[in-house]
Structures are given as structure tokens and as C-alpha cells.
Amino acid sequence: MKLTRPNKKGRFKREHGWFYIAMLAFPTIQFLIFYIAVNFNSIIMVFQKYDANTATYVFEGFSNFKEAFKVLTTNDNMIMAIRNSFIGLCSGIFTLFLSALFSFYIFKKRRFSGLFKVILFLPAIISSAAMTIMFRYYTDQAIPAILKMIGISSQGMFSVPDLLPTVVFYSIWIGFASTILLLLGDMERINESVIESAELDGASSLREFFSIVLPLIYPTITTFLVVQVGAIFTNQLNIFTFFGGNSDLKTMGYYLYSKVQSSGVESYPQLAAFGVMCTFVTIPLTFIVRWLLNKFGPSVER
């Protein structure tokens, strides 16, 4: 039964209109300030500079854009940050693929699947500040000591010159938690008879995964992939948590956050220019990836 019946529409609106307006007034204002105004102001700030004499932002033209473009294309650190952001995206895609496999294992209720589900979820519970401490000292001090006991000499994961593989490994290692829950929830909605008939036909588990389960959860996989692409320039790969604000290792997400965190208001216009430029790249990229995934992905009805 609908609350609005055609013959009572006018009365319904009269009686409930004020309640409706009262309930949605705050959410609307919140959205207008923290989404519309924030993003509009971001664009405005790109064309401004900070005037220390008046302590206000004044219009400057395109100089922030020019400077940001120059830095992004010529500064080695920024080129490295962009490269690492793409590496972060690749690691995210790899994590998603592994998550799908792990979810399939748990979905099929194989040995220890209940335990694995809890263990894989733990990184979502434990703070990254605490997890990075434990991970860092365990891999840097305990594991080399254990390996030394069995005659293997090794460096700690944080004692190597190039720390990128370490942070990528860590981001994969903690990246399964919520993805697995949502994929598992999706798998559990697959019609049982589809799985049973595949098993009766003698399909191998690999075939079952790639030909039945993966196509059926494809919309969720697509959503995750699109979200990953959308987050390409916000992913910090936990660099800030591991190394603070002065790390030589960078991603764009790390650069933007650490700069804003440590800079004064005078740097905001240029940082806004970086943000807007990244958004200009991310929006079309996200829509292209979404389009490609929808066009070339499997189309299966449940």
C-alpha cells in the first residue's frame, strides 16, 4: 500500500509537507555546504592566490594551473607519485581478483572457511596506526630473527633501499576485508541450483569460478573496479601512516594529504589546482573504464 493515494494526494501533501521539509532541511543545507560549496570553492581557489597583507584570497588567473602542470610534468618526485598511484591501482585490481578467489573458497564452505573469513576481516577492525606498527616491527625485527635461527640471513622489509614493494605488499595484505564481505554476500545470492547443476555436469572448481560465479558477480566486480579507478589519486598506499609527512616515497594521494596537513593557507590555491587537475583526469578515466567494463564484460541474468 502506498502512502500517497491519488485521491488523497493534496491532503497528504498538506498534512505531511512541513514534516518533510523539516526533516530534509538540515541534510539539504549540509549537502549544499559540504559538497556543492566545497567543490565550487575548489575551482574558484585554483584561480586565486593568498594575499598575506589582507589575509584573503585574491584572483590571480591561470598561474596556479600553469605551475601545477609544470610541476606534474617535470618534477621527478611528482612523476614518481603519478607512477606509484598507477602501481597502487594495479595492486588494488590484483587484491580484488584475490578477494574474489578467497570469497569463492569461503562461499564453497571449504576447510577453515569460517576462521579465514574472520582473519581476513581483522585489518578492517584494527587501526592502521596500530597495524602498521605491528607489521613494521614484525617484518623488520622478528622475521629476520626467526629466519636467522634456521640459517637464512635476510634483511627486514623496511631495511631495503626501495620501500615501494613493501608498501604495495602491505596494501594487498590488508586489502581483503570489506571486499570479501560484499563479494561473499553477492555470491550467497546466486541461485543454488545453478551451482548444483554445474557440479552435476562435472565442472571443475576453476571452471565453476570463471564461468559461473565470476560472471554472476560481475556487476559488483565492476563497481569495485570503478571505485578503484576513481580512487587512483587518493590512494596513499599507507605511506603517511608508515613514514609520516616527509617520505621520499610518494603517491598523489599521499602528496596531496601530507602537503595540506603540513602547509599553511598560502599553499592552498596551488594544492587546489593539483586536486582539480587530478579530478579532470579521474572523471573521464572512470567513465571510460565503466563503459569498457559494461561493453565487454559478460552479460548474465540470475
Binding site: F34, Y257, S267, G275
Partner: peptide
């Protein structure tokens, strides 16, 4: 309208709005 706004804001990836947010 609200439902449509939710869907649009979820697919629009906005990067680096921190400076603007702090200013506001």
C-alpha cells in the same frame, strides 16, 4: 532529486578538496 544526487555524487570522483574544505 535526492536519490539522483546520491547516485551522481557516488560516481563522481572528486580529488583533493581538502584545501577548499578547510577554508570553508
Amino acid at each position: 532529486i535526492i536519490y539522483a544526487i546520491v547516485l551522481i555524487t557516488m560516481v563522481l570522483p572528486i580529488v583533493g578538496a581538502y584545501p577548499s574544505e578547510l577554508t570553508i
